[in-house]
Design a protein around this nucleic acid. Sequence first.
RNA 1: GUGGUUGUAGCUCAGUUGGUUAGAGCGCCUGAUUGUGGUUCAGGAGGUCGUCGGUUCGAGACCGAUCUUCCACCCCA
Length: 448
Amino acid sequence: MQKPSIPKGTRDFGPEVALKRSFIISKIKKNFEKYGFLPIETPSIENLSVLMGKYGDEGDQLLFKILNSGDFLKKTTETDYTSSRNLLPKISEKGLRYDLTVPFARFVAMNQHNITFPFKRYQIQPVWRADRPQRGRYREFYQCDADIVGTNSNWNEVELTLLIHDVFNDLGLEGFILKINHREVLFSVAKYLGLAGKEVSFCMIIDKIDKIGAEKVTEEILLIGGNKAKVQAFISLLDEDTDSQQKLLQLEGIIGENKGVSELKLYFETLSRFPDRNLQVELDWSLARGLTYYTGMIYEVKPTSVQMGSITGGGRYDNLTGMFGLPGVSGIGISFGLDRIYDVLEELKLFPEMEHFNTQILIVHFDQATFDHGSILLDQLRAASIRAEIYPDQAKLKKQLNYADKLRIPFVLLIGDEELSTGEYALKDMKSGGQERHTFDGILRKFK
RNA sequence: GUGGUUGUAGCUCAGUUGGUUAGAGCGCCUGAUUGUGGUUCAGGAGGUCGUCGGUUCGAGACCGAUCUUCCACCCCA
């Protein structure tokens, strides 16, 4: 006999966890639909030609690749074995999806003639990364994406901001902050610092400031050739605890007129139309985000009361479908990280009680006659939309009650000879231990 | 991919410089209680000490390999 196991970085979900996960999904889905997003689904496996080269060299390595079917070695030659790089395309042409955005871009390019633009789609599916697992990092995890493509309107940025707040409000999470930045701003800053051509490196360094601190970041920027005085001036801006208006003015003072700055200004102006939404938005010049395809505003949600990486992220990309032969389609998207949101809600104990989801009444019986009678009542309870079940075996009362206790079923309906003859049933409250007699109608009314 | 770390009962963990038959708490099962769970009491089941190999008269402990866990780096939800 072999020991059963699952691959590293993957997990089984028992009923309790699975219920909580679907609780989160249902809230997210509800809000996506409230904002007019429509669902799509794409295959778990994509052609590697679709996936490769979209996430950088690092990303290509983190793709799970699928071996070709059949005798895949037959089609290889001696020279293919000189390196893995040469061999790979000969033995594998499919891979597991790495995120939902690239498959979505592929979907849009392939279905462009059937799509009405602007197209708002949502997609909630697992993705896979051949990463080394850690706390809050898995090899299989869910993303909940909503994207709007085929529109340049700045309203989209605002709409997604409102959506983010609706979702987290619905989930009961108050301690979070939405951080905002703009790729144009970052690129202009990089140029200003004397780093033309090294914008991406600059973004990667600046993004690490939370982890390694301002000094180290300054050091590294200087190392790739930043102007010392200018770098120090910019880094000192990050420290300042001023409001967004001030930050924008300060930055404009340094880099001058800029498309990113004016878009951010407009964004904050629009947000101010909704003063009673209590929007928690913070401009953060050090926010960069990894994915290479963002071109405009980028954002990220971090919980403030729990030590955890970003639980939601997204941004605007101007030309995502271009690589699939459909240029000029601007889009903006957001991705909720289900697994991390779960961990945060769990840590803050924000999930509703189990009783909210599971069976409300267990019917307990003593013999065949009372079981038969109970099965009829059971059907009527369910007809009234009450979550109910009957203990399926003939078993001692102790065992049946124990079952209710273990599954945290709050009420037990006992049916014995007495109940059969009087038509009044004993309804036991498992929490208090108390017991009352009710007619069946009385019970129905109690749970309606 | 690089460096470190962990593994003993279903779970959380003890286990002395290598020495008889590997322990505890919790959980589980049975009974006290044939119409009352959760509390109490009595009893019981459950382990190839991650796996394979080595050292030794003797290995849970020492050595090697491998898998696994967690952590840091890289990167990211």
